[in-house]
Design a binder for these strands. Structure first.
Length: 189
DNA sequence: CCCTGATTCGC
DNA sequence: GCGAATCAGG
């Protein structure tokens, strides 16, 4: 007898479902979830391309496809290369002082009265974390595990680094890591 | 950071 | 043929 574990083979049935859902506009991840746990979003996309389904809804797209950038075959790269130079790290980030966004304080407004909205105002100050003086680090005190987010004017004697424990995924602590990402990824024109 | 599809290439 | 890893854009 056979009782086997069926691999994630693309049966006609599944392919049908795939086609249907894809054409309906579902995202690859949604379809993957629909097909089952054994199917990943990548699997769906891969299959879609193999079936040559790619474009589903293309009204008037004047952009065939960006030139498939010359892929330098980065497959399976395992290069830790952790060269942390204090100087370069310090010169990278842009400690701009921007105001913190409101972050929806209070309950979600369902129906805000026109007269009430003037009451809601959040001061756009305190954009930077306050680091106690005894926690602040100078350039020479930085190491692989200290947040290298610069604070203040580099030319000033007030200048210091965050110095909190940095994440394994980057040179900054949780707070500054997120900030840096949100800055860069957001706009980018 | 989340997400999306697109592509490549070892298996 | 398959799909993880990666890339590129939002």
């Amino acid at each position: 007898m056979d009782s086997g574990a069926q691999a994630a083979g693309w049966t006609d049935e599944r392919v049908e479902t795939l086609k249907k859902l894809w054409m309906e506009g579902l995202s690859a991840s949604q379809i993957a979830g629909e097909l089952g746990q054994g199917v990943t979003r990548n699997a769906v996309i891969g299959k879609v391309h193999r079936l040559k389904l790619s474009a589903r809804a293309k009204p008037t797209n004047t952009a065939p496809r960006a030139r498939p950038a010359p892929r330098p075959a980065p497959r399976r790269v395992a290069s830790p290369s952790a060269s942390h130079s204090p100087m370069s790290a310090a010169a990278k980030p842009r400690p701009v002082m921007q105001a913190a966004r409101p972050q929806s304080i209070g309950a979600t407004a369902l129906a805000m009265d026109p007269e009430m909205e003037t009451e809601l105002y959040v001061a756009p100050v305190a954009a930077e974390l306050y680091i106690p003086e005894d926690k602040r680090l100078s350039l020479l005190q930085l190491n692989e595990h200290t947040c290298k987010w610069p604070i203040g004017d580099p030319l000033s004697k007030e200048f210091y680094f965050c110095g909190q424990h940095s994440l394994e995924t980057g040179p900054y602590c949780d707070f500054h890591s997120r900030r840096a990402y949100h800055q860069l990824d957001k706009k980018r024109r």
